[in-house]
């Protein structure tokens, strides 16, 4: 398993390390240049550098998704390389699990680089206290600390990405089980899976809010603390369930065997 993960991570990384490096370089340059931001000309350069760093961050997240799903998953399991992948003396479950673990590692890495770059670009004691004040104003009346709130938000974001990846994997496995129009069918199944899971999540959310007496939160302009906490926690559980359900859908379909081109 370790060997599989090693090769999968290496393959999924592709050119991403260059993007990591460029992003951190541009973030650092932005920081340096912004020291003299009171000079108009330098300020413009700083804005350009900052824009480039942010564009690179978006690129990292998009490329991670493309590398994980297209470059690694489809190529290894369904294209020419699949002739080697599926003839390795390894179970189908291990092949799949390795891809998922590698995807999680890569997503974490991408998010970490983005956070590190944002930290490099914007961190200052003033900025930190501004964020702190902002968080404290959001959690007024909440039965949680600022740290817990941030942890839940980061976790929610991370699990959402993982759930989305698993929806993607399941759609590809389903799409490639067809004899023709595999890419088109993968795309259609992605939309179906995503729409169904999103509607199901929303329904669960509505039911939970109704039971907890917070249904008015859906239309209210100012949300009550208890409603907000419920939404956060139900959202987190929903994405977790979504990830687990799609993992089993993907595993079941994949274990049935493949039909490579």
């Amino acid at each position: 398993m370790k060997k599989l993960i090693k090769y999968d991570v290496k393959k999924m990384l592709g050119t991403l390390p260059y993007f990591y490096l460029f992003t951190i370089c541009f973030a650092s340059l932005t920081r340096i240049v912004n020291i003299w931001s009171d000079i108009q000309f330098i300020f413009i350069i700083g804005q350009v550098l900052q824009g480039t760093a942010i564009a690179l961050m978006v690129n990292i997240l998009v490329n991670t998704f493309i590398n994980v799903i297209v470059r690694s998953f489809v190529t290894s399991f369904y294209k020419d390389e699949s002739y080697l992948t599926h003839t390795l003396p390894v179970t189908k479950e291990k092949l799949l699990n390795s891809k998922i673990i590698s995807a999680v590692i890569l997503t974490l890495l991408g998010v970490l680089v983005c956070f590190a770059s944002l930290f490099i670009m914007f961190y200052s004691s003033d900025f930190a206290s501004l964020i702190k004040t902002l968080i404290n104003s959001i959690i007024v009346g909440f039965d949680m600390s600022g740290g817990t709130f941030v942890t839940i938000i980061v976790l929610l974001f991370f699990i959402e990405i993982i759930a989305l990846l698993l929806v993607g994997f399941s759609a590809v496995v389903k799409g490639y089980s067809y004899n023709h129009k595999k890419v088109k069918m993968s795309f259609i199944w992605f939309i179906i899976y995503y729409a169904v899971s999103t509607v199901a999540s929303l329904l669960v959310m509505v039911v939970v809010l109704a039971i907890s007496g917070n249904i008015s939160a859906l239309t209210a302009t100012v949300m009550e603390a208890s409603a907000f906490t419920t939404i956060l926690i139900v959202g987190l559980i929903n994405y977790l369930i979504m990830a687990v359900v799609f993992y089993f859908i993907c595993r079941k379909q994949f274990s049935r065997g493949v039909n490579v081109d």
Binding site: Y83, H86, T87, T91, G257, N259, V260
Partner: peptide
Amino acid sequence: INDLLTLDDGEILVNGEKIGVNSKA
């Protein structure tokens, strides 16, 4: 034989075992 396609019907055995990790080894 190499598990790159799934059988509709029938059986393939290598050393008396169905296609899997042992046959691939």
